[in-house]
């Protein structure tokens, strides 16, 4: 079985997923790294919720069609069309189907639990994405960007195939927030 098949089987087993995350970003030029933490939820196909609550507030919601980013500290709401190349929104790859994975990445297996993805699209934000599983559940994501920054995301108390309500993957902007609308054609 190819690495892509193995990874797809692993990902397909998880129809929905929720976990706490700790993100650590270290930079090429040795600035001190940044730590952030929050909650991540996803549901096939193409829906995820990435909620940072420390040291700042940020909410990313992929509805499957659009990506909403809400940042109360700078009172901004940004909405973009969901870019289909998965290299642009790595969190999306965790809820995407086998074919889009293969279309977007070269996939190699370091072991039955560790997969290395390199984007086929050269314009992607990341040069390399590593996924690590334990007992079939995602526990770590490592991302290397093209300018030497490295991001490690550790997931804890992960739950899979639980009921996640539609409302978790929808977003209505609050009244006063300043909307930045980058959608190509707005309704």
């Amino acid at each position: 079985q190819s690495a892509a098949d193995q990874l797809s089987t692993l990902l397909d087993k998880t129809n929905s997923y929720s976990a706490q995350f700790q993100q650590i970003v270290s930079h090429a030029q040795g600035q001190k790294g940044e730590k952030s933490s929050g909650k991540f939820e996803l549901r096939h196909p193409g829906k995820f919720r990435w909620e940072v609550n420390k040291p700042y507030q940020q909410l990313l919601i992929s509805t499957g069609k659009e990506l909403w980013i809400y940042e109360p500290d700078i009172d901004s709401v940004t909405v973009n069309d969901l870019e289909q190349q998965l290299g642009a929104t790595p969190a999306l790859l965790l809820s995407s189907d086998r074919q889009s994975l293969i279309n977007s990445f070269h996939i190699n297996a370091k072991s039955a639990n560790e997969y290395v993805l390199t984007p086929k699209d050269l314009g992607a934000n990341f040069e390399k994405i590593e996924l690590r599983f334990a007992n079939g559940v995602l526990v770590e994501l490592n991302l290397q960007d093209s300018l030497g920054s490295h991001t490690q995301v550790l997931f804890t108390d992960a739950k899979t195939n639980i009921k996640l309500d539609d409302s978790r993957f929808q977003f209505t902007p609050p009244e006063n927030a300043d909307l930045i609308d980058n959608r190509r054609h707005t309704e």
């Binding site: 940020q58 700078i74 901004s76 909307l179 930045i180």
Partner: peptide
């Protein structure tokens, strides 16, 4: 000094938000 923060840049309706690191 070094600072970490969030920045929103907007001109008219277009723009984006980003993490800001300043050393």
């Amino acid at each position: 000094w070094e600072l970490d923060g969030r920045i929103a840049l907007k001109n008219g309706k277009e723009g984006f938000t980003a993490g800001l690191n300043w050393v």
